[in-house]
């Protein structure tokens, strides 16, 4: 298996971030949470590898540190 890639990998980091925030524009907090859930599931499927996903879950759960 490959490891979770935590090195910079976004081709246009600022542009992506802007699009991410814009996707939430006008949504209620509940709608935003639902959007995030759908987004995570879409990306998880793209990643596919179970170990990588579990590693990402661990890192996200650990408040980043």
């Amino acid at each position: 298996m490959t490891d979770l890639n935590t090195a910079p990998n976004l081709t246009d980091a600022d542009g992506f971030y802007e699009a991410l925030i814009a996707a939430h524009e006008g949504l209620t907090p509940e709608q935003s949470t639902a959007l995030n859930a759908r987004l995570i599931l879409l990306l998880a499927n793209h990643v596919g590898d179970r170990d990588i996903l579990l590693d990402a879950l661990r890192k996200a759960r650990g408040t980043g540190r």
Partner: peptide, 11 residues
């Protein structure tokens, strides 16, 4: 995330 994970720093 930025402190521990380099990918977040450019953000």
């Amino acid at each position: 995330l930025a402190e521990a994970h380099p990918f977040a720093r450019p953000l």
